[in-house]
Design a protein around this nucleic acid. Structure first.
Length: 481
RNA sequence: GGCCUGUUCGUCUAGUGGUCUAGGACGCUGCCCUCUCAAGGCAGAGAUCACGGGUUCAAAUCCCGUACAGGCCGCCA
């Protein structure tokens, strides 16, 4: 175990939070960048919060985004197991070591909290937390309670004297007075470790060199430092990451809008676009590039360029990046993906590959596809005839009527119904009339689509619709006018 | 309440004492291109660098204070 080792250590909550995904991404990028190892560890020490199948969600999320890990529960590795609930003997052993050395003690206080100081208790002494009463228990008293079979927790002894200074890679030197710290619980009464304890033990045992996590852990990091010292362990590099906020500047939460990776995937965002976007939230490459593939990110990533300020998640920019990533994909690949979003009726009736060719450069997110192509399937016959009037192309109601009448017979006479054939016919008609082609295309488009804005030109749409359907729609427009 | 942290265009950000009359990107507006839209090209609006004091010949950049925001103070992680 040499070189850089980073880890992603999610709790199985049932969904992949986008902020968590960014933490995973940074840890992954840092490992790959430095030819190190990226490890997956499942932190399932809260038995009351277990969510069925949620480990699957973690696997799937990392798989779909391509954040492949070198060691993990399903991959194995030299420092397993990689699921905390399977490591209980390890935590107990370590907790007992501290117990024997006198840097931890058993606490028999119950969970009702009456040994915890509350905010309102004493304004003159504003520091909260456990009051440490069980520290004073004599060995005999402890034995007596133990013999009675009373439940207990193991707490770390933290003296109120002094302070701890640690260096955070992004936030710099952080000092916390020990008065602010209380005797944290290491082992819960159900025998499971707390996050605080398991995290330190595992990060050390798993040889993690760079601890990356959300900045909500900054305040408790001194406690972890104290734990490392109590064990005599080397302290890894700490890299705390600023939060990602929602539009109103609040923490991204499930209640308001999307936070789950799955919801973005369902909306038709490409995994590489999501990765690209979240990478830029709190980090920048130091150049003016913004469009990155995963490989590009690995190449450019540098923890020295992670920022401190929280950032607001802006779906508009994600959308822009998504459309760029859609354009960057090979047509065959993108067609595969689009296929999932085309309504069955479209797939059955049209050459969808051709549609993909038309819309690949215009789709911002794939869930927009049905809406974009629905007019092909069914013409909304109630469209307003005012759509035929377009100032720029100098079209009018009467003019359009005349054009469509001509087109109706002209197009009916076309032998080979393809782009060149249709375009040629329309083009020479325009030339003969001495008008710009737009003056002809406008009424054509409106007639065959019922829209003023279409993905692709009028000819392309006519080709897609086929001869008889195109003529039918033109005739209908004539009647309308 | 205590402690910790943050604050540059609406948003993401560049910026580590002089090159900043603050750069880029998204979004927005307009123009060009164009059979519509999108893409692309060009142009534009948009930031008294949270505020107030210092330090310095010189501060977005250093120091102090204030305000605002977030985090922590769980047998949650």
């Amino acid at each position: 175990m040499t070189g850089v080792r980073t880890r992603f250590a999610p709790s199985p909550t049932g969904y992949m939070h986008i902020g968590n995904l960014r933490t995973a991404l940074y840890a992954y990028l840092h490992a790959r960048k430095n030819k190190g190892k990226f490890i997956l560890r499942i932190e399932d020490t809260d038995q009351t919060r277990l969510v069925e199948d949620s480990i699957r969600v973690i696997y799937d999320s990392l798989a779909v985004t391509g954040l492949e890990y070198d060691e993990g529960p399903d991959k194995g590795g030299p420092v397993g197991p990689y699921v905390q609930s399977e490591r209980r003997p390890i935590y107990r052993e370590h907790a007992e070591k501290l117990l024997n050395e006198g840097s931890a003690y058993r606490c028999f206080c119950n969970k009702d909290g009456n040994s915890e100081k509350q905010p309102t208790d004493d304004p003159a002494d504003p520091i909260l937390g456990y009051d440490g009463r069980c520290r004073k228990l004599s060995a005999a008293e402890t034995q007596e309670k133990l013999a009675k079979g009373l439940p207990y927790v193991i707490r770390q002894k933290i003296d109120k004297e002094g302070r701890t200074i640690f260096n955070d890679f992004v936030y710099g030197e952080i000092t916390v007075d020990h008065k602010q710290l209380d005797d944290q619980i290491l082992l819960k009464s159900d025998g499971y470790p707390t996050y605080n304890f398991a995290n330190v033990v595992d990060d050390h045992l798993m040889g993690i060199t760079h601890v990356m996590r959300g900045c909500e852990y900054i305040s408790s990091t001194p406690k972890y430092i104290l734990l490392y010292r109590a064990f005599g362990w080397e302290i890894p590099e700490h890299i705390h990451l600023p939060h990602i906020l929602n539009e109103s500047g609040r923490k991204l939460s499930k209640r308001e809008g999307s936070v789950a990776l799955s919801s973005f995937l369902e909306k038709g965002y490409l995994p590489e676009a999501i990765l690209n976007y979240i990478a830029l939230l709190g980090w920048n490459p130091g150049t003016e590039e913004e469009f990155f593939s995963k490989e590009g990110l690995i190449e450019k990533f540098d923890i020295a360029r992670i920022g401190k300020a929280p950032s607001i998640f802006d779906e508009k920019k994600l959308l822009w990046l998504n459309s760029r990533h859609i354009k960057a994909r090979k047509p065959e690949e993108i067609h595969e993906l689009f296929l999932k979003f085309y309504p069955d009726a479209i797939v059955n009736k049209f050459d969808v590959k051709q549609i993909t060719g038309l819309i690949q450069g215009r789709v911002e997110k794939m869930s927009d596809i049905p809406q974009m192509v629905s007019f092909l399937m069914e013409l909304d016959e109630n469209y307003s005839k005012e759509l035929f009037v377009n100032k720029k192309n100098k079209t009018t109601l009467e003019g359009s009527l005349a054009v469509l009448k001509d087109l109706e017979s002209l197009l009916s006479g076309i032998a080979s119904w393809n782009y060149d054939g249709i375009y040629g016919a329309v083009n020479s008609y325009a030339e003969a009339k001495g008008v710009k082609i737009g003056a002809i295309m406008w009424p054509l488009r409106v007639a065959i689509s019922g829209l003023t804005v279409t993905p692709g030109g009028a000819v392309e749409i006519a080709e897609l619709l086929g001869k008889s359907e195109s003529i039918r729609r033109i005739s209908l427009a004539i009647r309308k006018l």
